[in-house]
Simulated scan of single mutants.
Amino acid sequence: MHIPARKHRLTLLALVLSGTVGCDQVTKQLAVSGLRGEPGTSFLGGLFRLDYYENPGAFLSLFGGLSRPAQFWLLTAGVGVFLLGMLVYLVANRRLSLFHSGALALLVGGGLSNWIDRVVNDGRVVDFMILGIGRVRTGVFNVADVAIMLGVGLALLAAHRERTQDDSGGGAQA
């Protein structure tokens, strides 16, 4: 396994984190200013829809029915501690490949941006995108959610690649 230089990893982390948080926050501000109070808009024959929502829960409104104090402790305080731990792990773990570091940075960046929403938006996260065909639809999501899901998928792929390379005797890795 190729272990990247610390400065390359930290540069990648800074770029992915700032890019993820920046893109998500900009699109959320556009959603607030252009979609709040307006009827939803469909594109591509209904495949893609923009509609404004504020989600007090997590993924697919999970934990949205909890009391406000429970939501705070779980989704704001708990997630904040988890994200801080992940960030420390990313910065301190010098054995992570660039690919694995980038994947985890996407996850942390998306989580951080949604966490920022919770802190400044009274515990709610702005969601505004929906995908679907006919009656089959996703839940409402945002750019941070896409980054989180992409980060999870890429982290699983990175772990699989690293395990496969370790089993086969090694080799260079991105």
Rank of each mutant, 00 (worst) to 15 (best):
R118E: 06
N121M: 04
G102F: 04
M129A: 10
H100K: 01
I133R: 15
L104G: 11
R118Q: 07
W115R: 04
N114W: 00
D117R: 00
L131V: 15
A105T: 02
R137L: 11
V125C: 03
R135C: 10
G123S: 08
F128D: 14
D122Q: 12
V126F: 01
I116V: 14
I133M: 09
D127L: 01
G132F: 01
I116R: 06
S101Y: 03
G123V: 06
G123T: 07
L131G: 07
N114T: 07
G102E: 11
R118K: 05
V126S: 13
N114H: 03
V125E: 09
G110V: 08
M129H: 07
W115A: 02
A105C: 07
A105Q: 06
W115L: 07
V108L: 12
G109A: 07
G102A: 03
L98S: 14
N121Y: 00
V108M: 06
A103D: 05
R137A: 13
G134Q: 15
L106H: 08
H100N: 02
M129K: 07
I130E: 15
L107V: 05
L131S: 12
G111I: 02
F99I: 15
L106I: 03
G110Q: 13
R124C: 00
A105E: 05
D127T: 03
D122H: 03
S97D: 15
R118W: 03
I130G: 13
I116T: 10
L112M: 13
